[in-house]
Amino acid sequence: MAKFMLLIHGDEARWDAMTPAEWAAHGAAHQAFNDAAGARVLGGEQLEASSTATTVRSGSDSQLITDGPFLETKEVLGGFYLIEAADLDEVLKLVDLLPEVHASHSGVEIRPVVTRG
Results as ranks from 00 to 15, higher is better:
Glu100Leu: 12
Pro69Gln: 06
Asp61Ser: 15
Trp23Thr: 10
Pro20Asp: 03
Gly78Phe: 00
Thr54Ser: 04
Thr73Cys: 02
Pro69Met: 07
Ser50Val: 03
Leu82His: 09
Leu6Gln: 04
Ala32Pro: 05
Ala49Tyr: 03
Asp96Leu: 11
Val91Ile: 06
Pro20Glu: 05
Glu48Cys: 06
Ala28Arg: 12
His26Ala: 01
Ala85Pro: 10
Pro99Leu: 08
Glu48Val: 10
Asp35Ile: 09
Leu64Glu: 13
Ser104Ile: 06
Glu48Tyr: 08
Lys74Arg: 13
Ser106Thr: 11
Asp96Arg: 10
Thr19Ile: 01
Leu82Ser: 12
Asp96Lys: 15
Leu94Ile: 06
Trp15Ser: 04
Val114Pro: 08
Glu72Ala: 02
Ala36Trp: 14
Leu82Cys: 02
Ala49Met: 05
Thr19Gln: 01
Ala24Pro: 01
Thr73Trp: 03
Thr54Arg: 08
Trp15Ala: 09
Val91Cys: 14
Glu12Gln: 06
Ala36Gln: 13
Ser62Trp: 11
Glu22Asn: 05
Ser50Gln: 08
Ala32Leu: 12
Glu48Thr: 12
Thr66Gln: 04
Tyr81Asn: 06
Asp87Trp: 00
Gln31Val: 09
Ala36Glu: 14
Ala103Pro: 09
Arg116His: 15
Glu84Gly: 08
Ala86Ile: 10
Ala13Met: 02
Val41Thr: 09
His30Ala: 15
His9Lys: 06
Arg116Gly: 14
Gly59Ser: 04
Met5Asp: 06
Glu75Gln: 01
Leu92Thr: 11
Ala103Gly: 07
Ala39His: 05
Glu75Cys: 01
Gly10Met: 03
Ala85Cys: 14
Pro69Ile: 03
Ala29Asp: 07
Ser51Gln: 14
Ala21Val: 07
His105Ile: 02
Leu77Asp: 05
Val108Tyr: 07
Lys74Thr: 14
Asp89His: 12
Pro99Phe: 12
Pro112Gln: 07
Met18Gly: 04
Asp16Gly: 03
Pro69Asp: 06
Leu71Ile: 02
Leu7Thr: 02
Thr54Ala: 06
Gly68Ser: 04
Ile65Gly: 03
Lys3Ala: 04
Thr54Gly: 04
Pro69Val: 00
Ala37Asn: 05
Ala37Cys: 06
Gly38Gln: 10
Asp87Val: 01
Ile83Cys: 13
His26Asp: 03
Ser50Glu: 14
